[in-house]
Amino acid sequence: MSSLKPYDAVLLLSFGGPEAPDEVMPFLENVTRGKGIPRERLAEVAEHYLHFGGRSPINDENRQLLANLREQLAAAGAGDTPVLWGNRNWAPFTTDVLREAHEAGARRVLTVVTSAYPSYSGCRQYREDLADALITLSHEGRSLRVDKVRQYFDQDGFLQPVADSITEGLRSLPAGARIAFVTHSIPDTMENASGPEGNAYTQTHLAACEAVAARLGVETVPEWDLVYCSRSGPPSQPWLEPDIGDHLKQIKQAGATGVVVVPIGFVSDHMEVVFDLDTEAEEIARELELPFVRAATSGRAVEFAGSLAQLVLERAAAERGENPERPSKAGPGAWHDVCPANCCTNTRNPDRPAACGVDWVLPIDRTAEAQAGARQPEASR
């Protein structure tokens, strides 16, 4: 028996991104649908992608991660379980991938999301898209159960590659350099609703930053801060601050001799990293004459895929009724497997269905039910 039973497949689920100039605007329209983002703002963001030939780096990053995850699961004796790849906002789309998995015989799927932290955009929105896909497939008479591994901001394979890259970067900078951990800014309202009790987005980021700082191979750990990038809301709406550009100016004025910029909030190099940090933030540092090093993300590291593989094995064991170890190397302890009802609330539409939570019940389409032989589709826990 495969060590991943009762699961028939693993789904690596990511954000998605365009791979050609003519895909940029349709992709951005998918990302922002229903959010009332002005067309001129989309055109402005499109220029970021066109700066790189209209191709986001995220897809190639995910292809490498997919290959690494398959290798790590095979090494653990689970190579007979298919590992699939789907996206929220661009091909291969989640619904299409799950439909193909069902056609291939899968009835239970375990999802690994390429977001390490709890928040609406980093967790619940993926769960909502999974719910949409399951409802669509139910209408087609396809019964699937989908679960999701826990958040992994506290895992060795996520933390250690970042620490190693920072250590290397510090060696190239003079004494007095600082560390700027950077993550995607979100609205204050989303931060207040993140996790089951609120503020989990910043709390888990700070826990990861502290764990990484403790792993640095340097005699004296430099001063570090958690700062933000990629704000996109209107000026009237409060978002998490300070912005990385403002922060660089502040630390230069305070006497910093250099900076290692660490995209701690990102699993892989995608547009917010290669444009907001590698392009805009580096240009600001150059103008300030502030030596600048950008640390690597964990996504391509074999150790990272190894940690994801262990989380997959852990969840499968738990579903078989075993009692697996649940290691956590940052924060107060391992994150939950199944999201509570009030976890990372959708403040715009709190009643929108979200899979992989205790309150998730798949609506039954009676026509599909009849086509499926009156079998009620299974609900994801």
Rank of each mutant, 00 (worst) to 15 (best):
V83S: 01
V83P: 00
L84R: 02
W85K: 01
W85C: 03
N87E: 07
N87V: 01
R88K: 13
R88M: 09
N89E: 05
W90T: 03
A91D: 15
A91P: 02
P92N: 02
P92C: 03
P92H: 04
P92I: 03
F93W: 04
F93P: 01
F93N: 02
T94L: 15
T95V: 15
V97W: 01
V97D: 00
L98V: 01
L98Y: 00
L98R: 00
L98W: 00
L98D: 00
R99K: 13
E100Y: 03
E103K: 13
E103W: 06
E103Y: 05
A104D: 04
G105C: 10
G105S: 09
A106V: 05
R107I: 08
R107L: 10
V109H: 05
L110K: 08
L110T: 11
T111I: 13
V112C: 14
V113P: 04
S115K: 14
S115C: 14
A116M: 15
P118D: 07
P118G: 07
S119E: 11
Y120W: 15
S121G: 08
S121L: 12
C123M: 15
C123N: 14
R124L: 15
R124H: 06
R124Y: 09
Q125V: 11
Q125D: 11
Y126H: 11
Y126N: 10
D129H: 14
L134Q: 06
L134V: 07
L134D: 07
I135S: 05
I135Q: 11
I135A: 12
T136Y: 06
T136E: 15
T136F: 07
L137V: 10
H139R: 15
H139N: 10
H139D: 12
E140F: 03
E140D: 13
G141V: 04
